[in-house]
Nucleic acid binder design. Structure first.
Lengths: 125, 125
DNA sequence: TTTACATATTCCCATATGAGCATGTAATGT
DNA sequence: ACATTACATGCTCATATGGGAATATGTAAA
């Protein structure tokens, strides 16, 4: 099998840096394609293709206005990504605490190897 | 140019669903490769290759113990992803408010609203 | 050393990509 | 009707991928 399609989900869609730039640019309000091209310095076909991917996964919305098409980021579609990364928040906080405590303990004494308090673990195997 | 390497950054690395599973599995504490293989039901070479990618971008840490190697998620490396998605939080909250207000207005007036946002829709034009 | 175990790497291959360029299409202006 | 504007799509091509199978590496046990 090859790599999954960029349109398979939001995770794959945002892997491309240009698409992340587009999403940030369109987060505030809707803009026509031409403005994206000018603002980000990309080729027009490239922008259109990126927008197509973003649209396929629901990360942007489109509206026609005369001969131009106005795109806008659908922030709600980014929420699942935020929630997934959030499940790791407690761990990086815990890791920071461990580093901190270890440093303090090292300063206080020579080698105080303490038992690692594991916050909670998913069951094994 | 082709698609960026999976090892180019964390965004590309987590685009692969299996790698996300591995990261979740290794979030609690370190585990040898064999347990990952058993727990996730993947082929051993596949797991090794995914771990290689995750290690290249710093998403996991490795430690040798005898003849096995213990891997653990480096949650801190996920933080930038969390922070990037967070920049959109105010927008999706705003959008939710709009939807809510619209719904309330609709109920008050008893009129039918046509444009219900459909995330899965791949509409044209 | 020989053997068994735990991981890593290599090779092959179907598939997907993104950039550049050309072309198609729809809406507007004259 | 014709030209122009604003996008979208089609094309080729170099490159990266992930799965499977086979193999290599490294460590420990017999």
């Amino acid at each position: 099998m090859a790599r999954a399609s960029t349109t398979s989900d939001a995770f794959n869609a945002i892997a491309e840096p240009r698409r992340r730039e587009i999403l940030s640019y369109l987060a505030g309000d809707e803009r026509p394609v031409g403005e994206i091209v000018a603002a980000l310095g990309l080729e027009q076909p490239s922008v259109s293709k990126h927008l197509r991917v973003l649209r396929d996964v629901g990360l942007v919305r489109m509206r026609c206005q005369g001969r131009q098409k106005l795109y806008r980021t659908n922030a709600e579609a980014i929420r699942p990504l935020h929630e997934w990364t959030e499940t790791f928040e407690r761990y990086w906080q815990h890791q920071l605490n461990r580093v901190k405590e270890l440093a303090e303990a090292t300063v206080r004494q020579g080698s105080t190897v303490l038992k690692t308090p594991n916050p909670n673990q998913k069951e094994k195997s």
